[in-house]
Write a protein that binds this DNA or RNA. Sequence first.
DNA 1: GAGTGGTCTAGACCACGCA
DNA 2: GCGTGGTCTAGACCACTCC
Lengths: 253, 253
Amino acid sequence: MRKTEVVLPLSAFSDLERTGPVPIHHQISQRLEKAILSGEIPVGSRLENEVSLGTRLSLSRPTIRKAIQTLVDNGLLVRRRGVGTQVVHGQLNRSMELTSLYEDLVRAGKKPRTTVLSLEIVRAEKPVARQLSISTGSEVLKIERLRFSNNTPVALMTNYLLIQFRKVSKKELQNQGLYQWLRSQGVSVRVAQQKIGARKATKQEANLLEVDNGFPLLTMDRTAFDDGGMAIEYGQHCYRPDLYSFETILVKR
Amino acid sequence: MRKTEVVLPLSAFSDLERTGPVPIHHQISQRLEKAILSGEIPVGSRLENEVSLGTRLSLSRPTIRKAIQTLVDNGLLVRRRGVGTQVVHGQLNRSMELTSLYEDLVRAGKKPRTTVLSLEIVRAEKPVARQLSISTGSEVLKIERLRFSNNTPVALMTNYLLIQFRKVSKKELQNQGLYQWLRSQGVSVRVAQQKIGARKATKQEANLLEVDNGFPLLTMDRTAFDDGGMAIEYGQHCYRPDLYSFETILVKR
DNA sequence: GAGTGGTCTAGACCACGCA
DNA sequence: GCGTGGTCTAGACCACTCC
């Protein structure tokens, strides 16, 4: 039995801006995503083929292709040569992307709150120095924060920043995520390397996170690089596994 | 100070097959990746621009672009408009991709060994049924395996497969990864959804993994979907965090 | 054989960063 | 102003799947 093909009405694309600053392929993929998430193109159904959609919208095939490819990369669609494009998921989960916990919580409708435990300039120990590609003993900014979601502690975060960012204040760190602040300083993080593991909570960690001593913690270490490939920040985070986990959609290339 | 531009000699691309089954963009990106991993194009240096490389190789710009884009997606390169393309990493880490632990271990030069603890047909409990999109109480194949790396237990894996895969044997599961076997059956997993967390080991888990009772475990639950978007397999895995962790490179789109 | 996505060409104009 | 990547066009041929 052949899967049903769903052809979106042209009205779904009525307000495309062909000369604006937003790329057309992005506008297309947004509209397709909306139609998938809303169920207008149900899970399991086939999408109109590239050429036909391009003709209907008076757009070239590569433009349509790029729009569809974005959704394939996000795990919503699967394409098969000779068969067509099908919807495989009706909902998205983006939490493994390059975002911060703060933004994750806001998106999930939670009320994040941050307490800055300490903010000081220290000399980098060997592991920190290696992650940031600086000499051992160089000055770095060390930040310790405790993050709450709806007044329950979720994560304990230790971050090391290059000394050039020493001007950050406790207040700024309490009202936004670290990456948000970096962006406001004109630094855009494009690539990061991260490692997810688990270990027992130390006594101090257990106290701060309000769990028993020896409770298992989910850990994430991350080194962030800026546009120029320079290491900007190294963070060691621990999360309460009963309150937080990492979810992702994996797509085979 | 302007970053150094490294222009690869044409000899690096001498053996391109323009008519073979391997896409040209893939051949190009492989050769660029090799040059980066070997240090021929060092971290921090700039890559030759797209147009120039295309002219030198007598290839169109979109082809070159696609080759470079692959490496950007893998976190090796960063592109900036008006500036150029730079190398940000000299080594790759792919372990968060859609591969199995078995293949990970083989790639890392370890000697994986698998013991099949049980292989039986059971009726799906509610959570399993929901993950596989089948009715509660339907028959599914339940597999419990213990995986060793160099004779040390690393992971305890429980997997549920659709009943149509009941013909798998213990022997087959001992000599290859589950995904490898599925592929040999003509099933290609294209999309998966996974969740990484942590919890305490139960007494039984602790015994099998040779750790203390209550030891923290790293957990990963994964649902895999085939080409057609059908749920094929649901797995609940736990790993010894002292022996295994998940490493990834994240790239901002 | 018909229809689909995968690849490739040979151009074009634009936005942006830098000198 | 110049060089870079970002986008877009209008075609073409091929490989694969299904009927």
